[in-house]
Simulated assay, not measured.
Amino acid sequence: MWVSTKAQYGLRALIEIGRRGGSGAAVPLKDVAERQGLSQHYLEQIASNLRRAGFIKSVRGAHGGYRLARPAADISAYEVVTALEGSIAPVSCVEEDHVCDRGHVCGTIDLWQRVDAALRGVLGSTSLADLIADSERQEHARLVQLEPTYAEARP
């Protein structure tokens, strides 16, 4: 499975909106694009898909932007990736609607089914709230590293 930039950027945008809009405030897409280093034009296309899929809702007006349409804990990475990518099956023969006439003699089907189950398991058990918390921990660790220690701060 190859995860496109659409799914990667979509998750990053949702994390940013979830972090910054936690108080219910709308987050301008321009701010998300700048903070994440993404093309605003491409992010607008992705946001349109995220809105149609029910992950975010738009807020019009002077303080407009986007906010999460559902609690972050109720949005799984699996839902987001499949909404933006479609199937995440590593090979077509493990897709639910695929009929394979070689399944009875294929020596790799079990491997691909395990890979598929692992992908679904990891993405399905990871919520947007988990990703937001990870992002906040990473930023906190980065900020702590930037703070001078007492010995370094002394003249």
Rank of each mutant, 00 (worst) to 15 (best):
Q40C: 05
A47K: 00
N49P: 04
A118H: 11
A117V: 04
C106V: 02
S58Q: 08
D110L: 05
D116T: 02
A77N: 12
S39T: 02
E147Q: 10
W2K: 09
V99A: 04
Q36Y: 01
H41D: 03
S127F: 02
G22V: 14
G121I: 05
R51F: 03
R67I: 07
V115E: 02
A69Q: 09
L131Q: 14
E95T: 02
D31P: 00
G37L: 12
V94F: 08
T126K: 10
E139R: 07
A72Q: 09
Y9I: 00
H140E: 04
L128E: 00
L123R: 07
L111Q: 11
Q45C: 07
L119A: 09
C100D: 14
G86S: 15
I15K: 01
I132H: 07
E139L: 05
A26G: 07
L68R: 05
L29Q: 04
D116N: 12
D116C: 06
G65D: 02
A25E: 08
C100I: 14
A151I: 12
V144M: 06
L119T: 08
Q40Y: 08
L38M: 09
I15S: 01
C106L: 01
A118W: 07
Q40M: 10
E85W: 02
G124D: 02
G18M: 03
H63D: 13
D101I: 13
R52Q: 13
G121E: 13
S87K: 03
V81Q: 04
G37I: 08
E147I: 05
H104V: 11
E147Y: 06
Q40A: 03
R137K: 13
A47R: 00
V3N: 01
D74H: 15
A13V: 00
K30Q: 15
I46V: 14
L123I: 05
V115C: 03
L50S: 00
Y66V: 02
L50Q: 00
G65R: 03
Y42P: 00
L128M: 05
G21E: 10
S58T: 05
A13W: 01
R142M: 09
D130C: 13
A72Y: 06
D101E: 08
I109P: 01
A72T: 09
D116L: 03
G121R: 14
S4R: 13
E34I: 09
R35C: 07
V91D: 04
S125E: 06
T149H: 11
E95Y: 01
L128A: 01
V144Q: 05
E85C: 07
S48K: 15
S92Q: 12
Q113M: 01
K6G: 12
A129D: 13
K30W: 09
A153D: 03
G18S: 03
K6Y: 15
P71C: 07
H104W: 10
I17W: 07
R35I: 02
V115M: 06
V122H: 11
